[in-house]
Design a binder for these strands. Structure first.
Lengths: 189, 189
DNA sequence: AAAAAAATGTGATATAGATCAAAATTATTT
DNA sequence: AAATAATTTTGATCTATATCACATTTTTTT
């Protein structure tokens, strides 16, 4: 199972088997059922989660209880409330499972320890964060400059597999449109 | 002048004077006049820019020529088109000067070289990118969940100094509203 | 398999914010 | 200091998308 993590490391850095075992020792394995929470609004955030299987969503609930989806994660993706995780704040988002999900959990202390002990691991996380940055920036761009329909069509192209998996009202919330409008977008089209 | 950079390093890592001089040797100094471009849409992006003085904006021009502002940068901030810079693509944004601006330029090769040679520098950039991540995520959140007026008021609180400096139509574009609407937001209020 | 809950679709209406147009103000260049 | 250009304001419309209400379909639970 943990080869999923090893493979991800190896795409970016070279890592010896014994080293990997040592590193893996800093993660804990957990299983969650559909609808269970990895992170809850207002609570302390202990871990960054690397998905081994399943699917989760990260969302913010506004004053009116309306949900706004920030991110999804699938196998091979990392997810947490990074502001809370890095800077020991309380979570402002919820992360819950859209299906049964298995994860490897990494505490911030262990992350920093590994980054200190292995220059390569620090390198790995820098590269990862760079990628995330680019993705976030592109999301902002698309929220600023394109219509609901354009965003929907772009998502369709980029994440066809996710479109299958996701309930439409959840996808709507990610795209920043109401579920009614989304429903009309792909019927009218 | 370069003490601005040294100070920023020192907030995150410990660095010896001779080390700093060596590192600084990997940057080049440049001066830009108001309206000059650091990065242009469609072109190769050679540098990440650390501002010593001045102010720049990064924006995307859509098919209709409408400008959408992604980021500003002031003294002490880093800015470039990161997707183009990290992955050797052509720029999709423009970055130009809102006032005369001085920068230190770091090529991606030199960035990687420094990260290889100094674990501490890799650490520094990881931490920086983490911060940027959090900021970008919060921007997405605010685009998804709050009204133009709320976004304006939040910006007012967070960046009062920028509000002074920026032409209103530029600020409007950052907030994702038309200049007319922005004008009404703060008169009506 | 029935009952309950969740998700989706569709029509009618409301609204935040866009767009168009033109005047007024402010800044920049000659 | 004039002339030119850029920015901001204000009014009149228009429009994409939200909201509300309810029917239908699908999924989950008992």
């Amino acid at each position: 199972m943990s080869e999923i993590l090893r493979d991800q490391f190896q795409k970016i850095i070279a890592i010896q088997p014994e080293e990997f075992d040592y590193i893996l020792g800093h993660f804990t394995y957990k299983k969650f059922k559909k609808h269970q929470f990895l992170v809850q609004d207002g609570q302390h955030v202990t871990f960054d989660y690397f998905l081994l299987s399943g699917c989760v969503k990260s969302y913010y609930s506004d004053e009116n209880g309306k949900m706004h989806i920030l991110l999804f994660a699938l196998k091979d993706w990392w997810i947490t409330d990074y502001e809370a995780y890095y800077y020991q704040k309380n979570a402002i988002v919820n992360i819950d499972c859209l299906e049964d999900t298995e994860v490897l959990c990494l505490s911030n202390d262990n992350r920093e320890k590994l980054c200190r002990e292995f220059h390569q691991i620090e390198h790995f996380f820098r590269k990862k964060t760079n990628r995330r940055n680019v993705a976030l920036q592109n999301r902002i761009l698309s929220l600023l400059s394109s219509s609901a329909k354009q965003r929907y069509e772009k998502f369709l192209l980029e994440y066809p597999s996710l479109v299958q998996k996701l309930p439409k009202h959840i996808l709507a919330s990610y795209l920043g449109v109401s579920r009614e409008t989304l429903s009309r977008l792909y019927s009218t089209k």
